[in-house]
């Protein structure tokens, strides 16, 4: 049954529904929870014959869907792994990235936490478990509760590379399905610490910790002086074409990039 659904989806993706285009977009929660749905709504307003099927369950799921040919676009907050490129090549596919927005991974704390900033070294020590008590970084004594994304997340992988010298997360870290769940948990827990994309920092109960004196903002993210800056991507099979190209072009247009900025990301241009 699952196979039949996949085949049907693949047919729909490749041929399009009669008289209507459906774009299947899967992958990153960072992009797919807020930004891409808003872009899709704006796009549909101009292209009423296009419908969208968006699933935001982590960047890895976007690559898997592209390789299975059950999605037109794979949203990703990280670059494709060599294993994913190889898997695509084995099926005759060519994963091509398009940068659609810049993001900064923000370190968030409970708003009651007296700490205002951390060093990069302290961030690494906290998330790897080398430091387990807030008193070690100048805070009130108390066990640190770590909230991270789950392993399907591109942010999970990016943060390991950008902030943790590729070391493993602390065994005590609690893995959340999305940015909003991390925000929710940290807002509830005075000892909590987590990381989220820039678009998710405007929430009550949390605050953003400066890293080496820098908080994520547009100019620091764009010129990469904020340490946890990263591009976010649409991945397609080869150069975008048809409705896929039209939506990618819309995302990169002035109108699309304005939405990017409104949601909280940093525009490409």
């Amino acid at each position: 049954m699952k196979k039949l659904i996949a085949i049907a989806t693949a047919l729909a993706v490749s041929a399009g529904f009669a008289g209507a285009e459906q774009l299947v977009i899967k992958g990153s929660d960072t992009l797919g929870a807020k930004l891409v749905p808003q872009l899709a709504e704006a796009y549909k307003a101009e292209n009423p014959n296009t419908s969208f099927n968006i699933a935001a369950e982590g960047s890895s799921t976007g690559f898997a869907a592209l390789i299975d040919q059950t999605a037109n676009i794979g949203m990703s907050s990280r670059r494709a792994k060599s294993t994913e490129i190889s898997a695509a090549l084995a099926k005759g596919l060519d994963l091509r990235p398009t940068i659609v927005a810049w993001d900064g991974i923000a370190i968030i704390l409970n708003s009651a936490n007296p700490i205002q900033g951390l060093t990069k070294k302290q961030v690494e020590q906290i998330f790897t478990g080398d430091i387990t008590d807030w008193s070690a970084v100048g805070g009130k004594p108390g066990k640190i509760s770590i909230y991270t994304r789950n392993t399907a997340s591109g942010t999970y992988a990016d943060f390991k590379e950008l902030a943790m010298s590729k070391r493993d997360y602390a065994g005590s870290a609690q893995k959340m399905a999305g940015n909003e769940q991390i925000v929710s948990e940290v807002a509830k827990n005075p000892s909590g610490i987590g990381y989220v994309g820039l678009a998710y920092v405007k929430a009550s109960g949390i605050k953003v910790a400066a890293v080496d004196g820098k908080t994520p903002n547009q100019s620091d993210i764009r010129d990469k002086t904020y340490p946890y800056s990263r591009p976010t991507f649409y991945y397609t099979n080869g150069a975008p074409a048809g409705a896929t190209k039209s939506f990618v072009d819309f995302t990169l247009s002035a109108k699309g990039q304005k939405i990017v900025e409104q949601v909280g990301f940093v525009p490409v241009k």
């Binding site: 494709a80 060599s82 490129i85 991507f233 490409v268």
Partner: peptide, 18 residues
């Protein structure tokens, strides 16, 4: 540009994969 750099990265990974 960032996009051009990304294209080069993708080419390199693809070359490596093959």
């Amino acid at each position: 540009t960032s996009q051009e750099a990304e294209d080069v990265r993708a080419d390199l990974v693809r070359e490596n994969a093959t």
